[in-house]
Amino acid sequence: MSNKMHIQLNVNGEAHEFLAEPRELLIYALRERLNITGPHVGCDTSHCGACTVTLDGKSVKACTMFVAQANGAEITTIEGIGSPDALHVLQESFREHHGLQCGFCTPGMITRAVKLLEENPTPTEEEVRFGMAGNICRCTGYQNIVKSILAAANEMNAQPSSSEAVGHNKVEAAE
């Protein structure tokens, strides 16, 4: 039983070390060990995307990845993207454009959307929908989520040096 592994994670720019059983899931390591509760447990099976984090530059569903697999990784969660007092452009856009209702999917949605706009800074609506296909929302019908992402992309492209930089610096710091 006590076959524990030494795990190192860098989460939102902060280094963490702990012993964990290899079968421990990344989402529980984040939520229960590190008290990083922004990524949520929605479906437990990587379908809903509420647990989405960025891991070594890729969007990952933290509910189906072992923490052992994440050993040594740089991880960004919603907490590393912005704070209530200093919102990332995407966070402000989701707020402003009503890209949420119950809010449970929102952290994963935005974490994925940040990555999507890094991958493709000028997506079409169709590309946004394709790029967000792994994240489920049960409340909004997605209209305002897509609108929020497109509006954020526009704003980030219009002001490459100002508000966009706030969130991006944090992402880069974490990576």
Binding site: G38, I78, P84, L87, Q91, R95, L100, G103, P107
Partner: peptide, 24 residues
Amino acid sequence: KPLPHDAAHLHVTGTARYIDDMPL
């Protein structure tokens, strides 16, 4: 007025607490 959801700033930052997020 079309004001945002009251907790929108918390939802977008992952700081809106649900039962599973409460410190125990």
